[in-house]
Every structure is written in structure tokens, then in C-alpha cells.
Design a protein around this nucleic acid. Structure first.
Length: 257
DNA sequence: ATGGTAGAAACTCTA
């Protein structure tokens, strides 16, 4: 099973690129973030024609998540239970015996912002819920835009980013609490090139200058991680005309997992 | 000292 995550930063704008990418990479499951579409405007016909079913949970202008899958997805969940949130950031469903959790973690804006507090609260709620979800679904993938670079090697200039949002200690500790649930960072199960990033600011020619961060991740549960065969970042779509500022991440799991 | 870009939408907010 090939599982991908991609923050598309507007599915309306990126739909042609997504359809090209699906044909090229043939993923079985794709988690999308920042669709920025109300559910009524989700491009179900185009996705269906590409051979995928879609679950989606969106809103106008901001946020929005979706799970595309070749096989049917069951038992959807569109928010953390007991947390009625108008921000559409979470979607979970089961595909082929694997629980797929698609997350768009709040950006946080800056460490002195209310949005940063909201980010840490949201991560704590996610972690709490995942503990129970892992009991129900031992084979689980948490894929999405975490808006957290977990380690120094995930940041082009860790000194400059020290204490900044996306790399501050409380955010990185929140990431470690996800790992403490037994989740493994599938990207780090394999040898990777230095300077592997998934996001580059649109400004200041960051992509061309390789000024990126690795903030999009596919975590695999303890039961699923041993079945992971590969994980890579596909930077090609970042070279497109009108690209998303994020590149997709793709993880390969043993067939039948 | 705080810009720079992109997307959505309606001029400012979010990232």
C-alpha cells in the first residue's frame, strides 16, 4: 500500500497538478491538506475519473482535509471526538485494514500568538485521542502537515530557526509525545539525503536556495512500521508552475498490510 | 527594521 500526504494549498488551483501526480505516482491512499474548499465544491467527478474515491471535510478559504483512496474508505471521522472545532483539520478513515489519519496541524503563526497556544492545545488533544484510536486500530498511519520540524537536520538553518514557530521546543516536544505513542517517523526508517525538506516559503526564492523545512510527515504505528518498505519526499511538484509551497511525501507499506 | 509571495476574497488574513 502506497500512502502519500500533500498540502496542496488550494485544491481548486492544484487540481490539474494533483491529477497529473496521481497518474505518475499511483498512490493507493492520498491525504490532502489545505483544500480550502467547502464540501459542496469538492471536485468529486474529476477525482472519481482518476480512479479514486474521496472523503473530505472542508470549509471556505482556510484549512480543509481529504482522503483519496483506490479502495473504499470506511468508518470516517471528521473531528476529534468531544472537540467541536469549526477549523476543518482532521479526517480519519479505514482503508484496507489500515486506519488512515489525515491531519492539518495548526501553523501557530508565531510563538507569542494565540494561534500558537491553539496549536499546542490541538496537538495535545490529537495525542490524547490517538492513544485510544491505536487500541481500536493497531495498524495506523498519521499523515499530514504537522507544521513541526522535529530535529535540527529537518531545518536548513537550525540556529536561525531556534525558538521560532515550526521549530520551537514545545512544538518539538509535542512531536516527541506522538512518537511516545509508539509511532515511527517513516522517513527516518531509511537513509536519507541531508537537506531533505517538504516545505519552502514562497518568498525570497526559498526553494531555489534550498531554504526548506521538513514539516510534512507520515508516522506509522508500532504494528505497521515494520511493514514500511520505503519513504521519500517527491520534490518534483515543487518545480511546477504555480506550485504548492509543500512537496508530497510517499510511504510504501508491504502489500496486504 | 521587517520585507518578501501566494491564495482566497474583498482589502485583510493566513501561511
Amino acid at each position: 500500500m502506497r500512502v502519500a500526504t500533500w498540502n496542496v494549498n488550494s485544491l481548486k488551483v492544484r487540481l490539474p497538478q494533483l491529477l497529473d501526480w496521481l497518474r505518475l505516482r499511483q498512490p493507493d491512499v492520498v491525504c490532502l491538506q489545505e483544500t480550502k474548499l467547502e464540501d459542496a465544491k469538492f471536485p468529486t467527478a474529476e477525482i472519481d475519473a482518476a480512479g479514486y474515491r474521496a472523503l473530505y471535510c472542508g470549509q471556505k478559504t482556510y484549512n480543509g482535509v481529504a482522503i483519496l483512496s483506490r479502495d473504499p474508505a470506511t468508518d470516517p471521522l471528521t473531528a476529534l471526538p468531544g472537540r467541536a472545532d469549526e477549523q476543518k483539520r482532521l479526517l480519519a478513515a479505514s482503508v484496507g485494514g489500515v486506519r488512515i489519519v489525515c491531519a492539518y496541524v495548526p501553523n501557530g503563526q508565531s510563538v507569542d500568538s494565540d494561534k500558537y497556544r491553539y496549536k499546542l492545545d490541538w496537538l495535545a488533544a490529537l495525542t490524547g485521542w490517538l492513544g485510544a484510536e491505536l487500541v481500536r486500530h493497531p495498524k495506523l498511519v498519521l499523515a499530514g502537515d504537522y507544521n513541526i520540524a522535529p530535529e535540527e537536520r529537518d531545518v536548513h538553518d537550525p540556529r536561525a530557526w531556534e525558538g521560532q514557530v515550526l521549530f520551537s521546543a514545545p512544538e518539538r516536544e509535542a512531536f516527541q509525545r506522538l512518537l511516545a505513542l509508539g509511532l515511527k517517523d517513516s522517513f527516518r526508517l531509511f537513509e536519507q539525503a541531508p537537506g531533505s525538506f517538504t516545505w519552502w516559503d514562497y518568498r525570497l526564492n526559498a526553494f531555489r536556495r534550498k531554504l526548506g523545512l521538513r514539516i510534512d510527515h507520515i508516522l506509522a504505528s508500532e504494528a505497521l512500521a515494520p511493514l514500511c518498505r520505503a519513504c521519500s519526499i517527491d520534490i518534483e511538484p515543487r518545480r511546477n508552475e504555480r506550485p504548492s509551497d509543500h512537496a508530497p511525501v510517499v510511504a510504501e507499506f508491504e502489500p496486504g498490510s
